[in-house]
């Protein structure tokens, strides 16, 4: 019915949200973090979701990543309605289709860099020898093959985030979701991370969606979605942005 037409027209849409609302119960009051978000993200795009703290961008990130359920509305990933999926199918989706990167890295502290990178492959049922081979390749990709046997605590913040990027790529996802990936990093390390993400985006045609308030990120984004008070304030393509970045940097 309605869905059939959507499929025909949106083959190149990686993520679509329709009227996504998220409410949190905070004591006696209900907090509306998202008040109806409608966005479409094309395959292979590099998207930044921008907005001040508390604007709802992390909440939106969680909705898109199937990490939390919306109170109302629907999220489609590759035209599949997440609400229709069983828990097991959601787990499969998280395992194979989406790679996650977090501000706080979220590496498993007791595992080495290599073990962290190969963990998603365990869940995917990849054999031990294959895991090791692929894990080392991914670590080499982010320039950390020498650090394979180091624990997260023995790595710098930038290195930890690079391990997290390698981990997010473990099962060849079509979408990478990054929540403030440069938030805990200094300027230069942050730029390195952004460059790696951009390379992945260009070389493997991975859709990158990043919640951020790092202005460096704007430089590489195809489009920027501005969120304010749980609503989409505006969406800008890169061509419209160039000018603004200039003025912002000029002002500083």
């Amino acid at each position: 019915m309605a869905e059939a037409s959507i499929n025909k027209t949106n083959n190149d849409i990686a993520v679509r949200t329709v009227g996504v609302i998220k409410e949190y119960q905070m004591g006696g009051t209900i907090l509306r973090a998202l008040k109806g978000i409608d966005i479409e993200i094309k395959r292979g795009e590099y998207i930044s979701i921008m907005g001040p703290s508390g604007s709802g961008k992390s909440t939106l990130f969680n909705m898109i990543g199937a990490l939390d359920r919306p109170s109302a509305g629907t999220v489609y990933i590759d035209d599949v309605n997440l609400l229709e999926l069983s828990p097991s199918e959601i787990a499969w989706l998280r395992c194979w289709k989406i790679g996650y990167i977090f501000q706080t890295f979220n590496l498993i502290p007791v595992m080495t860099a290599l073990e962290n990178v190969t963990l998603p492959m365990i869940f995917a049922g990849v054999s031990a020898s294959e895991r090791r081979k692929k894990g080392m390749e991914l670590l080499a990709k982010v320039g950390l093959e020498q650090r394979a046997d180091h624990k997260p605590s023995e790595l710098s913040g930038g290195q930890q985030q690079r391990v997290a990027i390698a981990r997010s790529l473990a099962n060849g996802p079509s979408i990478i979701l990054a929540d403030e990936p440069t938030g805990n990093l200094d300027l230069r390390t942050g730029r390195d991370i952004i460059n790696i993400l951009r390379e992945m985006n260009k070389e493997e045609n991975v859709t990158v969606i990043s919640a951020t308030h790092d202005l460096k990120m704007l430089d590489v984004s195809d489009r920027v979605i501005y969120i304010r008070d749980g609503l989409v304030e505006q969406i800008k393509a890169r061509s419209e942005l160039k000018l603004e970045i200039g003025t912002i940097e000029g002002e500083q």
Binding site: E3, N7, D79, S88, E89
Partner: peptide, 20 residues
């Protein structure tokens, strides 16, 4: 349509007990 697209989504495999 949902069939065609949803066909791409599979159920997550259950890991063997030995792995746990």
């Amino acid at each position: 349509m949902a069939q065609g697209a949803k066909g791409e989504i599979r159920s997550q495999i259950e890991l063997p007990f030995t792995e746990a």
